[in-house]
């Protein structure tokens, strides 16, 4: 039944549309308006349902190039997940360790992981770049970035 890719995607979208609709139906009503806050979301939910049904029956129109994009080697999927993990940690520690420290570690680590093997240049860039950005933002533009554990 769910053989083609389009059919599988359309099911995911259908679930999304239904969840969205359920939430839209729970929106509280407001007494002083002609078109309440729930009208447009409800409409969108139903449109998405009909579009995903349309997609279910649609022919696969992807070109060879688009199909080739989907063939990712297993190893690269691992790399992608790892980088997303790094970004997650970057965000998590940003306000704890501060902008300079977190960013420096991130740039060095992420570049190293992705295959940049010049430790000296890498270290220089990953220290100088965040430092430059930090000073420019906080001192010149008066836009605060997290200071963290460093004293300035």
């Amino acid at each position: 039944m769910f053989k083609t890719l389009n059919q599988r995607i359309s099911l995911v979208l259908l679930v999304l549309a239904i969840v969205y609709l359920v939430l839209a139906y729970q929106l509280p009503s407001f007494a002083y308006t002609v078109i309440d806050a729930d009208v447009v979301p409800k409409g969108l939910g139903f449109i998405l349902i009909s579009l995903s049904i349309g997609l279910f029956f649609a022919k696969d129109s992807d070109t060879e190039e688009q199909k080739a994009r989907r063939k990712i080697p297993k190893k690269d999927i691992g790399t992608l997940l790892a980088v997303f993990g790094f970004v997650f940690l970057f965000i998590f520690f940003l306000e704890i360790l501060g902008f300079i420290v977190t960013t420096a570690i991130f740039i060095f680590g992420c570049s190293w992981f992705l295959g940049y093997k010049k430790p000296v240049t890498n270290a220089l860039v990953s220290i100088l770049f965040p430092l430059f950005m930090y000073i420019m933002f906080t001192k010149f533009l008066q836009i605060n970035l997290p200071q963290g554990i460093l004293p300035f």
């Binding site: 970057f90 740039i107 992420c110 570049s111 295959g115 990953s126 770049f129 965040p130 933002f137 970035l145």
Partner: peptide
């Protein structure tokens, strides 16, 4: 800029952009 380094820098820029 070598690709691995560029990737890290683009991620950093996106993060600063949103944070700012």
């Amino acid at each position: 800029i070598p690709r691995p380094l560029l990737i890290s820098l683009v991620i950093m820029f996106s993060i600063i952009g949103v944070y700012a």
